[in-house]
């Protein structure tokens, strides 16, 4: 573990700590929402530990609280995070091998993936991924527990602008890569497609569809190569 501290720069460590803290705060509201929706306190905490995927859990709790069946809730939860499949394909070396790989896969979420991608080499990618993952795995259920206990103390996290925090975190971390023209056009095409289809498709699918922006960009690159 101490090699993680040595490998990463102080700035990165601070960023990871901040993200973990933000996740803990969102965990607070998640715990509060779940308990307010009539679920017993252990449900959000256990889900936080075992599922460890915020959007799936919010959706799961939301569907259950709205009176939906648990099976529908699980399916919706799986669909919304289907993007983890290509995430896993993008980062095979970071996850480790054997038993470690199982834990490594469990730690996968938007934040850990984006921190790993932002690091320049494999040792640093690995260190950032694991540190961020373990931090979130600790902060998220603890936040949910405190939020559940506090009930509805923080009634409206939206008033604090916390909902803008998550997209801003991801944006800040992907921006350096978007300075590259080719990546940018693929990302913009994908985002446009995701936004255009979002009103019609179940939550989670539009983001996956965004991947086809990559296909468009690669196709265009081939064309220019042929012309040359």
């Amino acid at each position: 573990m101490c090699s993680i501290w040595r490998t990463l720069q102080r700035g990165t460590l601070r960023d990871i700590a901040l993200v973990c803290l933000a996740v803990g705060v969102i965990g607070l509201s998640y715990g509060a929402v779940a308990v307010a929706g009539g679920l017993p306190l252990w449900v959000p905490v256990l889900l936080g530990l075992l599922v460890a995927a915020a959007s799936s859990e919010f959706l799961f709790v939301g569907v259950i609280a709205a009176g939906g069946s648990p099976i529908a809730a699980v399916l919706a939860g799986l669909l919304v995070n289907a993007r983890h499949l290509p995430f896993g394909l993008a980062l095979p070396d970071v996850l480790g091998h054997g038993r470690r790989r199982i834990l490594g896969t469990h730690l996968m979420n938007d934040e850990t993936v984006v921190f790993a991608l932002a690091q320049p080499d494999l040792p640093r990618k690995r260190a950032a991924y694991w540190l961020c993952g373990l931090g979130i795995l600790a902060c998220w259920p603890v936040g949910a527990l405190l939020g559940g206990l506090a009930g509805t103390v923080i009634e409206d996290t939206d008033a604090l602008g916390l909902d803008a925090m998550f997209p801003a975190v991801i944006l800040a971390l992907v921006l350096p890569a978007l300075r590259d023209g080719e990546t940018r056009s693929a990302a913009l095409a994908g985002s446009a497609l995701a936004l255009a289809t979002a009103p019609f498709l179940p939550v989670g699918l539009p983001v996956l569809l965004g991947l086809s922006g990559l296909v468009l960009a690669v196709g265009r690159k081939r064309e220019t190569e042929v012309i040359r």
Partner: peptide
């Protein structure tokens, strides 16, 4: 990167549908 940017756009602009 493409997926994450799409994620930024949808989470920034939309709530459910």
């Amino acid at each position: 990167m493409v997926l994450l940017t799409a994620l930024v756009c949808t989470t920034a602009l939309l709530e459910a549908h």
